[in-house]
Computed example of a mutant assay.
Amino acid sequence: MSANSIITLISKNDVEVQATLQAVKQSVTFRTMLELLDEEQTYNIPIPVPEVDGETLGKLMQWCEYHREDVSTPDEPNVATDRTKAAEIPQWDQTFLQVERVLLFKLILAANYLEIPRLLDYGIIMVARGLEGLSAEEMREYLNVPNDFTPEEELAKRENNKWGYIG
């Protein structure tokens, strides 16, 4: 099977997404699965992706197709935790990840689930950039996290943590 062979992926809502073998192998999960199952014997068998919806899987495979020539190594530094690399998200990737917040979060979850480290790192950095300069309440809203503190509890938390409170 050649690197340009077409692989069919089936999303959790039964949407078929096609991608080249080389693009699919951007996912450590898929790469390992294909190696273990012998990709020649599994050719033309659709691969189910039960945790990812069709829209997200399609977008994710767009990213993988663009990066299909990229070769990552196991010892490649984690972009999200390496401060010297965090500002170096390529322009194409920054533009690609400027999507609705819900889709960005879905892409991050899918990249984590399918083990696509660079996409995961870039997505996390984009979320972190979106949180810069926001108050605690604005961060809750951005991340869709409800405030489950009573007004009294929140006041007590602020008093106890004045040194680190932003907002």
Rank of each mutant, 00 (worst) to 15 (best):
P46V: 06
G58K: 05
K25C: 11
D82N: 15
D148T: 04
G58L: 00
M126N: 02
E16K: 08
Y113K: 02
P46H: 06
V28E: 10
D93L: 12
G164H: 00
Y43K: 15
T8A: 14
E100C: 15
G123E: 01
R83C: 14
I116E: 05
G167T: 03
R129D: 05
L34D: 04
E35D: 14
D148Q: 04
G58C: 06
Y43D: 12
L103E: 03
Y122V: 14
S135R: 02
P46I: 07
R140G: 07
T42G: 14
I89M: 11
M33V: 09
L21I: 13
N161A: 08
Y122G: 08
L97D: 02
A80R: 13
S27Y: 03
L9I: 08
R31S: 15
A128S: 14
R101W: 07
R83Q: 11
A80H: 07
E132W: 01
M126E: 02
G133K: 00
K59G: 05
R158D: 00
V24P: 01
A86K: 13
Q94C: 12
C64T: 11
S11R: 04
V15S: 05
P117H: 13
L155R: 13
G54E: 03
R140Y: 07
P48G: 02
P146K: 06
T32S: 14
P151Q: 00
M126Q: 05
N161M: 06
V24H: 01
D14S: 10
W92E: 09
M139W: 03
V17Y: 03
E35A: 06
I125L: 03
D38Q: 12
R158S: 03
I47L: 14
N160P: 09
I6P: 04
A86G: 07
N44V: 05
Y43C: 12
K25L: 08
E154T: 09
I47A: 04
F105P: 03
L131S: 12
T29S: 03
Y66M: 09
F96C: 08
Q94W: 09
E69M: 06
A136Y: 00
E51Y: 11
R101G: 10
L109A: 14
R118S: 12
V79I: 11
Y66K: 08
V17I: 15
T56K: 00
G167Q: 00
V79K: 07
A87V: 11
M33R: 02
E35G: 02
L34F: 11
G58R: 04
E76S: 15
V15R: 01
P151V: 00
V17A: 03
A19P: 13
L36S: 13
M1W: 04
E100F: 15
L107P: 14
V52D: 01
I108C: 08
A136E: 00
F96K: 02
L57R: 08
F96A: 02
R158C: 06
L21E: 10
Y43M: 15
Y113R: 01
L134H: 04
G133Q: 00
D148A: 08
I7R: 00
E100I: 15
P77Q: 03
